[in-house]
Design a protein around this nucleic acid. Structure first.
Length: 685
DNA sequence: CAGAGACGCTTTTTT
DNA sequence: AGCGTCTCTG
């Protein structure tokens, strides 16, 4: 290990890692004098990782162990050591987290950090495919389909293939998209996925395979790329085109990957090939926090990393800086029951703190009222609203709470769930920009045409067929006759004004379309004023962009934070509570965390009962939620909840609490004011 | 053939 | 609540 202050980290390596002698860094890469005092800023484990030499490294970073800090310092250290920042590639889970890390690195090392390349796998794939994708038949102007677009295209292809006969129970487009996606992300044939996870649709396997081929062909033909394609195609590019592989690999000589436990096989392959010429790859993650198996992620990636990269040195970060001992005790107990993981032991120096509280409520509304009341209390005690969060398994779990919070005048922002960008009216407006940007985009054409008065599925198909044949599509549009003639003419005029008048900036395009679209919006939705405000918001976002192409792909790859409902409440004050799905809370922390719906059947959800793997994932998810809390942790569960899916009444707290001893938790039962139990005053909705 | 209204079904998590 | 399907009307 080069550059280490001592050699005492051998004991940190375990499992069957082989040893490998590391060469010293070449002399000119070794800084004569570093500008930062790393040893003073980091603990010894962090320091070891930050100053690691060349070659593959695996950093096992427990929850709250300063993982981000370590990555930030690693970036700074590399730059400090004289490495060209533009040769560093930082792959993260969200672009926001990459931006945050680079900003922090900038504070340490200065503006040089701005040249570091960073982003999500998907956004990096987007960038590389636009630049080098020609060799696998991709034009630089391709359009990115989000999940909803992908489903729409699947539906379109299905009807073209005549597979929508209503005789039998054919899976819905969302389910089909799920199957396809799982197949791509796990590199397994569709048949396997269907038989294993969707056995009740096995009868339709032939049709599904046909549909999958049709969907793939349609995407390629029209220069459309869905989320999975970004990874699949990048993988293909770096695996099949040796020239491109060498080019890209030599472009990024130092690769850092955050949240490695949530990568899938495609991403692991990409990393492996990108690092093929230099092996300078450092991955950071925590196997105990792997929560994305549903999209093909496998914590096995992190377990197998040392085997894939011979000579890997393993670093472990085990000191937790976030939580108090009582919270950590609970977290440790929960995760100890997990079956397969790297052994590590988290410890903290924050010994004192209140015990986590387990709260039983008579029903959902009692739970909501408890949360609202407690939040007000904590705020009185001086905990700022922005230091509190409510976490839940599924987005809809917070519906009742949202109403209750509004009633108490508490403002919040919701993360996860339906995004602003996914609402029908925003997609409608964007579809107009997209047909101009990519006239082959059948999904958007279909959407745009269906909005025209008098156009239905049949007419839309006919128009699209005519457009494909014509080399002047807008001209052809104007020639259309019949009931919908006038509407199509108006559409043609609008689109021409976008395409014709040179390079209109995104914000100007949004304006033009808005004018055309407003009457449609008004006839389609009774609640149009609310939706107009979303479109104003979109306008504001567009103002930040110079190019339509970047605007569109950014929206698809990194939708703005906050759900549809949250948007209207924006920028009143920054003193806001966070409501979040556990998935969206990854990497974040708060003084006080409430986790709601800790009831067996909701968390873990009934869907996960059947498979051990599913249950293990839910356990890790629970672990993630608990370890978000710094000081106060409330776990709440309603009882006497009817679950429609299973037909059961749920009343038992999550099974993940079974191994927790009574001394580790304070237990509360809620009573109505006046002393009576509150079970008859609940849930009027 | 488009569009509106009614009804039954099913509901995780996200780039 | 939202999607898909079915039915009815113009």
């Amino acid at each position: 290990m080069v550059g280490l202050p001592n050699n005492s980290f051998a004991h940190l390596m375990e499992r069957d890692t082989k040893t490998y002698v590391l060469k010293r860094l070449v002399d000119e890469a070794v800084p004569r004098k570093l500008s930062i005092d790393y040893a003073a800023a980091l603990n010894s484990q962090q320091l070891a990782a930050v100053t690691a030499g060349e070659g593959p490294s695996l950093v096992i970073a427990g929850a709250g162990s300063g993982k981000t800090r370590t990555l930030v310092y690693r970036v700074a250290y590399l730059i400090d050591s004289g490495i060209d920042p533009s040769q560093i590639l930082l792959l993260t889970f969200t672009r926001k987290s990459s931006q945050e890390m680079l900003d922090r690195a900038g504070e340490l090392i200065g503006v040089r950090s701005e040249r570091v390349r960073g982003g999500t796998f998907h956004s990096v794939a987007n960038m590389l495919l636009r630049r080098y994708g020609r060799s696998i038949g991709l034009e630089p102007g391709f359009t990115i389909l989000d999940r909803g677009d992908a489903e729409d295209l699947i539906a379109l292809v299905r009807s073209q293939l005549g597979l929508n006969e209503k005789d039998k129970r054919f899976p819905r487009k969302g389910t089909i998209a799920e199957m396809f996606s799982k197949s791509e992300n796990t590199l397994r044939p569709l048949a396997e996925i269907v038989v294993e996870e969707f056995d009740h649709f096995s009868d339709h396997l032939d049709a599904l395979e046909q549909l999958q081929r049709g969907y793939q062909a349609s995407k390629r033909q029209r220069q459309l790329v869905d989320y999975d394609d970004l990874l699949v195609l990048l993988r293909r590019l770096v695996m099949e085109d040796e020239g491109v592989r060498r080019t890209i690999s030599s472009l990024y000589r130092y690769i850092l990957v955050d949240e490695y436990q949530d990568t899938n096989r495609l991403q692991a392959d990409v990393v492996r090939h990108l690092a093929s010429t230099h092996h300078n790859v450092m991955v950071v993650g925590d196997d105990a926090q792997s929560i994305y198996a549903f999209r093909g992620a496998t914590f096995k990636n992190i377990m197998e990393f040392p085997a894939l990269f011979p000579g890997t040195i393993i670093y472990k970060l085990e000191e937790n800086y976030r939580s108090t001992q009582p919270i950590l005790n609970l977290a440790n107990t929960i995760i100890e029951a997990a079956t397969e993981r790297y052994s590590k032991h988290l410890f903290t120096r924050k010994l004192d703190g209140p015990l986590p509280v387990l709260v039983e409520a008579a029903g959902e509304n009692a739970q909501s009222r408890f949360i609202a009341q407690k939040i007000l209390e904590l705020r009185e005690e001086g905990v700022p609203l922005s230091e509190m969060a409510v976490l839940f398994r599924s987005s809809f779990h917070s519906f009742d709470l949202e109403i209750e919070l509004s009633r108490h005048g508490l403002s919040f922002i919701k993360r996860g769930g339906v995004k602003f960008i996914e609402t029908a009216h925003v997609k409608d407006l964007l579809a107009h920009m997209r047909v101009v940007a990519n006239p082959l985009d059948a999904v958007s054409w279909h959407r745009v045409l269906m909005l025209v008065e008098g156009v239905g599925p049949k007419k839309a198909q006919d128009v699209m067929a005519a457009l494909v044949k014509s080399d002047k599509p807008y001209h052809a549009l104007r020639e259309m006759t019949g009931r919908s003639g006038k509407g199509l003419k108006d559409l043609a005029l609008t689109l021409e004004s976008l395409a014709g008048s040179g390079d209109l900036r995104p914000a100007e395009q949004v304006n033009h379309i808005y004018e055309y679209y407003l009457p449609i919006l008004k006839t389609q939705y009774d609640d149009y004023p609310k939706r107009m405000r979303d479109l104003d918001h979109l306008q504001t976002i567009a103002e930040g962009y110079q190019e339509v192409e970047t605007f569109l792909s950014d929206l698809a790859l990194e939708p703005p934070d906050g759900s549809a409902a949250g948007v209207e409440a924006t920028d009143r004050d920054d003193e806001r509570l966070v409501l979040s799905t556990i998935h969206s809370a990854k990497g974040l922390e708060w003084q006080c965390v409430f986790v709601i719906w800790i009831v067996d059947g909701r968390f873990p959800s009934v869907y996960s009962f059947s498979e051990d793997e599913g249950l293990e994932e839910e356990r890790r998810l629970f672990y993630v939620s608990v370890t978000r809390a710094k000081r106060h942790l409330y776990l709440t569960y309603p009882i006497n909840v009817f679950d429609r899916g299973s037909g059961m009444i749920l009343s038992k707290p999550s099974r993940f609490l079974d191994p927790v001893s009574p001394g580790q938790l304070d237990q509360l039962v809620l009573m109505e004011e006046g002393g009576r139990a509150d079970w008859y005053s609940r849930d009027d909705h």
